[in-house]
């Protein structure tokens, strides 16, 4: 069974949203992580931040209401909320590194069972640079990797050991894909939850990393 792209995004983003606590300071990466903001549970309000110097992000403005000087870290227009503030880039990354950012949600090319993450370079092929990804991975109190379980060729993105150059070492605390929720621990990668549309065997078959399968596994 496979899912259409919108459903994949919805499953991942809505599950990640449940990890956020009221009052958390949260940085959402480009792509699927950005969508998390649309699935915040009732009564949960977070400080969304953007590393280009905005604290308190609203949604995408309606057509014609864009402000040329209000963009998010992906370059897209964004709107203010009543509590919005702006800071310079050094202040912004001091917030990231200084223990003031509770959660960062990032996409990844690869994550491994030791919590390593690679998402900034494919040597010889794609060298965009790390942008703020290394700072966010090292600085945030909790790093959640949110991405499709497999790449476009169907290969697992959750590996025994990352093959691409790392963005950061041992920082990923939770992995959320359209198939499963997994937690890198000192014992190894633990399968915590399986999506309701699939099953444990399918998750194991789609995962290169060694999964620890506990007796009790949740569904989402």
């Amino acid at each position: 069974m496979s899912l259409d792209k919108n459903k994949v995004v919805e499953i991942i983003a809505s599950r990640v949203a449940k990890e956020l606590k009221d009052g958390d300071a949260v940085n959402l990466g480009i792509g699927i992580p950005t969508e998390v903001a649309n699935y915040l549970p009732e009564g949960i309000k977070v400080w969304l931040t953007s590393e280009n110097g905005m604290i308190g992000l609203g949604g995408k403005p309606p057509a014609g209401k864009e402000h040329k000087d209000i963009i998010n870290a992906g370059g897209g227009f964004i709107s203010e909320v009543p509590e919005t503030s702006y800071i310079d880039s050094a202040f912004s990354f001091a917030i990231v590194r200084g223990g003031h950012l509770d959660v960062t949600v990032l996409g990844a090319l690869e994550v491994d069972q030791e919590g390593n993450i690679a998402n900034w370079i494919i040597p010889g092929k794609m060298v965009p640079g790390m942008g703020g990804a290394m700072d966010l991975c090292v600085g945030a109190k909790r790093v959640i990797a949110a991405f499709t379980h497999t790449d476009k060729n169907g290969s697992s993105k959750i590996l025994k050991k990352c093959r691409l150059p790392l963005t950061a070492q041992g920082v990923v605390k939770l992995i959320v894909t359209e198939m499963a929720v997994m937690e890198p621990t000192s014992e190894g990668l633990v399968l915590r939850e399986v999506a309701s549309w699939t099953n444990v065997d399918a998750v194991k078959a789609a995962t290169e990393a060694e999964l620890i399968i506990p007796e009790k596994i949740g569904t989402f």
Binding site: E51, D88, A90, G132, A133, V138
Partner: peptide, 25 residues
């Protein structure tokens, strides 16, 4: 890393000799 880059600029402007960061280790 972006935070390192801007802090290197800030450090120059603030007259410091450098700084220590865990980012990239």
């Amino acid at each position: 890393p972006q935070g390192t880059f801007v802090e290197r600029i800030r450090t120059a402007g603030a007259g410091l000799g450098g700084f220590l960061t865990p980012v990239g280790v």
